[in-house]
């Protein structure tokens, strides 16, 4: 793939990938790193991409999802080893206003449910595409989506009542 093609691809999809990673991690630096690494990795493994089997967008999201998981695992390990390098957990410093927001409700969801709801709602991906990105069966996507929506509804309704 030549550099112009890669740049076109970057211009077309980098915002979507940043938005997905940011909504998932709520970490600006990590999200920007994931965006850059996604395209570097895509450039490196472009020959593995088969347009007949998958859409380029799904393929990029899959790379971004895997990179996000790896970076989060690495970050958590470092956090355990050097806890003084990291800020106190966000939920401890969230203001009352912030507690009422969907942003806070999303962090309350289990990680696997959070990614499904973000991909489904904010990126209009089908359940089959989400299954492909997360490498899980479609049935699992359906059940995670159902539980995520139920929990989000409960969390946001509870906040409204407070």
């Amino acid at each position: 793939m030549n550099s112009n093609d890669l740049e076109d691809l970057f211009n077309k999809y980098h915002k979507q990938i940043y938005q997905f990673t940011y909504r998932y991690t709520q970490d600006e630096t990590l999200s920007s790193d994931v965006v850059q690494d996604t395209f570097i990795k895509f450039d490196k493994y472009a020959e593995n991409f088969d347009p007949a089997k998958s859409h380029i967008r799904t393929f990029l999201f899959r790379i971004a999802y895997q990179l996000t998981m790896t970076k989060l695992k690495r970050k958590n390990k470092l956090k355990k080893l050097l806890p003084f390098l990291y800020e106190t957990k966000q939920s401890e410093t969230i203001s009352l206003e912030e507690k009422l927001s969907v942003r806070a409700a999303l962090t309350e969801l289990p990680a696997e449910q959070r990614s499904v709801i973000i991909l489904f709602y904010y990126h209009d991906l089908t359940q089959h595409q989400i299954a492909e990105i997360m490498q899980i069966p479609v049935g699992t996507v359906k059940s995670r989506l159902h539980h995520a929506l139920k929990k989000l509804k409960q969390l946001l309704e509870a906040d409204d009542n407070e």
Binding site: R23, S32, L106, L156
Partner: peptide, 23 residues
Amino acid sequence: IPEELKKKLDQFAVETPDISLKK
């Protein structure tokens, strides 16, 4: 998805900063 929940979800807008392709 219920309209009420959609409205809440739409509140989480994300501004994308300037990111370059080169690392």
